[in-house]
């Protein structure tokens, strides 16, 4: 059942558009319906692989059958190891995401509001953005040490750029007519940003946060590859070194569940902010 709670079909991609579902009952009925179609392909592939290994058509040594992966997954969960590693990873992502989001929002809003600041800051940031973030790893280790600080910094860098770009781009394309309403009420500076510019870009801001969060999960793996004693990334490295492919796939599975779950939580948290939207909510 936990799996069902995490996966939010249809509306997950386009928040705010639930107008067509007037009756709550119908939404609940639709939920498993959308899930079923989405589950057909992975379940079929899993069953196929399971059968192939069972009937001796494949060895399953490098890619263990689903039953063994599930065993390992449950075993790790019951021993508490999975939670310990998952918690370490979640903590890094949460802190890195928070730092990256705050920095990206502040700088994006400031550069969007002030043309002078944008001309000063934006070219440098765009230059930095074109550096593959993994390339920072050696430098961050030198600067911040091998422990948490360097990992969190790497994640924050990964989250920063999509958020910065989303906020800056949103503000630069904000509706001039709406901004004029703010000017008529004599808003400027921080008040204009807070009361007009940021609310008007909320929909694209949420998208930026979601891609930032996705990158956060990506970079936590890179961070944990560079030397960690716990975390799901550590489980991956450990599984590789000790030749335990089932542990690797179990950790990957945990990443998938966490990533999807975190995204669903973000969408659920931001949905109240987007109730006002008058948008095409996608084909239902």
């Amino acid at each position: 059942m936990a799996l069902f709670d995490l996966v939010v079909p249809n509306s997950a991609l386009f928040p705010g558009g639930t107008k067509s579902a007037s009756l709550p009952v119908r939404r609940w009925l639709r939920l498993p319906d959308g899930l079923l179609i989405g589950l057909v392909l992975p379940v079929a592939l899993a069953l196929f692989w399971e059968a192939a290994v069972r009937f001796g058509l494949a060895q399953g040594r490098l890619l263990p059958p689903p039953s063994r992966i599930l065993d390992t997954f449950i075993g790790l969960a019951q021993a508490g190891t999975l939670w310990q590693h998952a918690l370490a990873t979640i903590a890094r992502v949460v802190v890195g995401f928070a730092l990256g989001t705050v920095a990206g929002t502040l700088l994006g809003a400031a550069a969007g509001y002030s043309g002078l600041l944008r001309r000063i800051v934006d070219p440098s940031l765009q230059g930095l953005r074109s550096i593959p973030s993994i390339a920072w790893v050696p430098l961050f280790i030198l600067w911040l040490g091998i422990f948490e600080a360097s990992k969190v910094a790497l994640i924050a860098v990964g989250v920063f750029f999509p958020v910065y770009l989303g906020v800056l781009g949103g503000i630069l394309s904000a509706d001039r007519k709406i901004v004029e309403v703010g000017r008529i009420f004599r808003l400027s500076g921080f008040a204009l940003v807070r009361r007009i510019l940021l609310p008007s870009i909320l929909p694209s801001y949420v998208i930026a946060l979601r891609s930032g969060l996705g990158l956060g999960w990506m970079f936590v793996v890179a961070a944990e590859f560079m030397g960690a004693s716990e975390g799901l990334g550590y489980l991956l490295v450990d599984g590789q070194q000790l030749g335990k492919p089932d542990q690797i796939v179990a950790a990957i599975l945990a990443f998938a569940l966490l990533g999807k779950g975190a995204d669903a939580i973000l969408v659920a948290l931001t949905r109240p902010l987007l109730r006002w939207q008058d948008a095409y909510a996608g084909g239902r």
Partner: peptide, 29 residues
């Protein structure tokens, strides 16, 4: 030289702020 507190302006379009309710829009200033 800039928008003045004694002067209000009504535009050709309503230009309501879509993320605020009607009463929040009216109370904006």
């Amino acid at each position: 030289t800039a928008p003045h507190p004694a002067i209000g302006l009504i535009f050709q379009e309503p230009r309501l702020l879509p993320w605020l309710t009607v009463e929040q829009n009216v109370g904006f200033g």
